[in-house]
Amino acid sequence: MSDFIVLFLAVLLALLIKPFAEKHAQAIWSGISSIHFVQRNGVVLSAYLIFSVLAWAIFMIILPQLYMVDFSFRHNLPFNEVGGPGDTWTLDNYQYLLFGREGDTEAMNWLHLKVFFKTILVSALVTLFDLAICYPIAYYMGQVAVGGKARLMFLCLLIPFWVNEILRAFAFRILFGTSGVINSVLIGTGVIDEGIDFLRADVGLYAGLSYAYILLMIFPLYNAIESLDHNQVEAARDLGSPWWRIHLRVVVPHAKPGIASGSTMVFMLTAGALAAPQILGGPSSLWFTQIIYDWFFTGLNWPQGSAYAFVLLATCIVFVMTIMRIFNVRFGEIAK
């Protein structure tokens, strides 16, 4: 029935617009073609560009996210009560993350809050770790290696990432398991007598998370460092600078946008990772995304899951903005 109405209204609208469009066709046409963007790209291409960008932004990003925001402020109602008198706005879902249910023994919902803070903290540490590993490699590829060598290194970095994330995570399980490769080697060479449970100690998780998005650190860093005129490094050296000061005063300031953009991506993706924690997390460790996942699929409580997801998103954004402010990176720079 409602489909019919929509169709009817559309036809009506078209009929109403038609005489106007016919009368002013010339004016509309010349108006469109006088826009600089249209002149440069042609009518078809510019229509496609505008339409696709708008469609992407509105239908794929803004609308679903708005739905989720809306969800997060509603009660988890059975299907037949949706739209009924009980379907009102509420802050319960957010409150739950902070304080838990009424009548809980503790005043705060420490179980979830601890996981939440641990997720943020560990993500930050993983980001720092990736930065520390990638900076020398990126510097080598961007400033020291010539031609073929840098390309070869690129390939070596890139090819492992053809393997999908889940397989890579399982590979780490095999590596870090109690009877895994590392333990076998250590026991075999007599370094230790009994296998170490790396997974229970979360070593596997941290290693897996650091590995998962490391390319997103390398590439922006490489791009930034590669664009530095090597003469500046030599000039600093010629003026008597030791290597660490060259990095501190010349290379790092130049690479700051790359560091910012790589760190932002790694941090955001690590905080939102699901596969690695699911597969590599120890029996007692949880990642905040796993709680969110459980709300959606085990608890079937979408409003609660949405609220948790939004808290994570908002915290990550605030965190990244704060760090960028501290290190004096302008927002536009990370898109360079």
Partner: peptide, 28 residues
Amino acid sequence: PNKRPTALIFQNLALFPLMSVADNIAFG
């Protein structure tokens, strides 16, 4: 080069673009 009593002026000058004139001159 950092230990020799020489200073080099590069073809493209290689001034540090993120530093002020005074900081450039005083870098050494």
